[in-house]
């Protein structure tokens, strides 16, 4: 989910840039050189996963997966998403230089919020964990949509209808992100629980 070049006002672009820089700085601080390989390779896995189209009824959509990214990486989601966005810009020309900051915040801030909300519920009972993971996937996309809406409305109040349209159109994606995140978290709990936060041997 991202905003294209040439849409947003200067103030919004600057605000996005500053927030993204702050988040990335915190993420980098929390990630020592030992973890760069891990974060980098996971970031590339997310990059690849977000290229995959999933069928929804007659159409298809690609998933964002920022909920599970947040659960796996915490604050390091900021630098990971920032880097993935640079790669998308360079390789496919999706997004671009001036909106890099805003787009990083739109996707990474919900990741971090989901990390704080749900990371200590994942190893509770099955039904709790499934609910938490579903909400993590659902809410991260919803929050991204809302942040995107905020960026558009702060640029131009008349974008309101457009924002409603975008958030509404993404509702099926939110549900599917929730389902996929729930299954994915349960899978990781069985296969490689040490990847998830709050794991004790």
């Amino acid at each position: 989910m991202h905003i294209s070049e040439g849409v947003l006002s200067g103030q919004v672009l600057v605000a996005g840039g500053v927030l993204a820089a702050a988040g990335t700085a915190i993420g980098l601080k929390k990630m020592d050189y030992e973890r760069v390989a891990e974060v980098g390779i996971l970031a590339s896995a997310f990059f690849v996963a977000s290229l995959i189209n999933v069928r929804i009824g007659v159409s298809s959509a690609h998933l964002i997966l920022n909920g599970i990214l947040g659960l796996l990486l915490g604050w390091a989601a900021f630098p990971a998403i920032f880097v993935a966005l640079i790669l998308q810009a360079v390789l496919f020309q999706f997004g671009g230089i001036t909106v890099l900051g805003v787009n990083t915040v739109i996707m990474a801030l919900p990741s971090v919020i989901c990390y704080y909300l749900f990371s200590n519920i994942i190893f509770k009972s099955n039904s709790l964990a499934i609910t938490a993971a579903f909400l993590g996937g659902f809410l991260s996309v919803l929050f991204s949509g809302l942040l995107l809406g905020v960026a558009l409305i702060f640029t131009e109040e008349s974008f309101f209808e457009m924002v409603l349209l975008i958030v509404g159109a993404n509702f099926p994606v939110m549900v599917i992100e929730g389902i996929v995140t729930a299954f994915c978290v349960m899978f990781l709990r069985k296969v490689r629980p040490e990847m998830l936060p709050g794991y004790v041997k």
Binding site: I41, L42, A49, V180, F183
Partner: peptide, 24 residues
Amino acid sequence: SYKTYAYLFGMLFVRASKRAERVN
């Protein structure tokens, strides 16, 4: 179908994480 995709993504992350360990 979504479950299968979720396991596919999960497997990608698992392999990525194992690879990261070796690379590191």
